[in-house]
Design a protein around this nucleic acid. Sequence first.
RNA 1: GGAGCAGUGGCCGAGUGGUCGAAGGCGCACGCCUGGAAAGUGUGUAUACGGUAACCCCGUAUCGAGGGUUCGAAUCCCUCCUGCUCCGCCA
Length: 426
Amino acid sequence: MHDIRLIRDDPEGFDAVMARRGLAPVADDILALDEKRRELTTKLQEAQSRRNDASKAIGQAMGQGDAEKAEALKAEVAELKKTMPALEEQDREIAKQLEAAMLALPNVLHTGVPDGASEDDNVYLREWGQKPAFDFEPQEHADIAPALGMDFETAAKISGARFTFLRGDMARLHRALGQFMLDNNTREHGFTECNPPLLINEQAGYGTGQLPKFGEDLFWTKDDRILISTSEMVLGNSFREQLFAESDFPMRLTALTPCFRSEAGSAGRDTRGFIRQHQFEKVEMIVASLPENAADELERITAVAEGLLQKLGLHYRVMALCSGDMGAAMMRTYDLEVWLPGQGAYREISSCSDGGTYQPRRMNARYRPDGSKKSEYFHLLNGSGLAVGRTLVALIENYQQADGSVLVPEVLHPYMGGVTKLEPAA
RNA sequence: GGAGCAGUGGCCGAGUGGUCGAAGGCGCACGCCUGGAAAGUGUGUAUACGGUAACCCCGUAUCGAGGGUUCGAAUCCCUCCUGCUCCGCCA
């Protein structure tokens, strides 16, 4: 959501930003609606003003016992009121159109975002570690994991494609990963652990920007609730409709939750394995930050996510998303891509973003700067730390042995109850 | 699921048809007092949109949300949402 004044003041500049996202110009249409609305509103308000004056006069006339005068005024107002419903109706209609148009607009871009049309244009920033060396041909996780307790077939029977049933030590390793990440974020980086609802109402979907445009990517319940596609949706909206003090910041939340995505637009993509699921777990980090600290906070959450990969000994690279690949609600994003030797590819495992004031505006979440009378919008940042399912995939592919077993990284041993290796079933 | 009660400003809380954008308190801001602070004391203190370039000023709207009655609604009526209490059911 944008301040309409941003568009009024610099329509060309606004369209230029939209163009960087590969979108057609919108400012003209928006401003036409805006102008129409202001015109109608002014007319309506003038009528209301006259009505209010007359009503006040009626009250006074009646107070003075001048019934005749009161009746005359009443007749006058009745006449005036004949024109008001139509104005109200038009005003409401235009306001609705304008709001719908505004809600559909994506965020502006941070000046540092590189230009580009697709993920191929994302910019390499740095990397950590190196690709592990194998004295055998490393396998894809989808080939070796079934023998280790990753059961695609059973899940397909009872739920369908893109669901997975984990068993035994595989399930435990998955759980260990989530616990490890959560502990890391809360104990070492000052995040508050949260256990939020997984079902949210439609309004909250608008708050974080999944709605109105991406409703088909979500699972909906019959009573019109949404299964969260990321805990960003709940943690972010936890600030909704509140006014904070400057001293409240920064507010850092983290949660381990399942995430549900219909993957409507990705038919045929990553259909094998555990990479792209309808249901997966993710540890999310959300930071509410003062605008002036947001750039530092983005580096900070990125560093937390990187630290997790480093502790797990997984080679990764950091990419700056280009203008054409950036999520609609974000103004700047870094992706962490982990190396998967079985696939011979880097895959996204964390996405860390500064969303600016876009979401707080949509959810009316503000703060009052010290000594200021006026409230302002703060920044919301989010980052995965990390996608648990994909981290499990990365462990399997990076720590696989020639015999089909998988070593458990040392940092997870405390969570594994003595298990240091996943062994294939005979 | 049934019954009852309630939702007012940053927070608490008064207010059942006109002079209410709303008493009072807390908090906050500024001043006085003080060596400095606390206490005390004085003043100020909702938001959005529009008129405007403007945080002065003017108008409109907002007392959970949406409708309705009325010349006029925080106040009356209807629907919905949320919370609390009791009952039922239940992990």
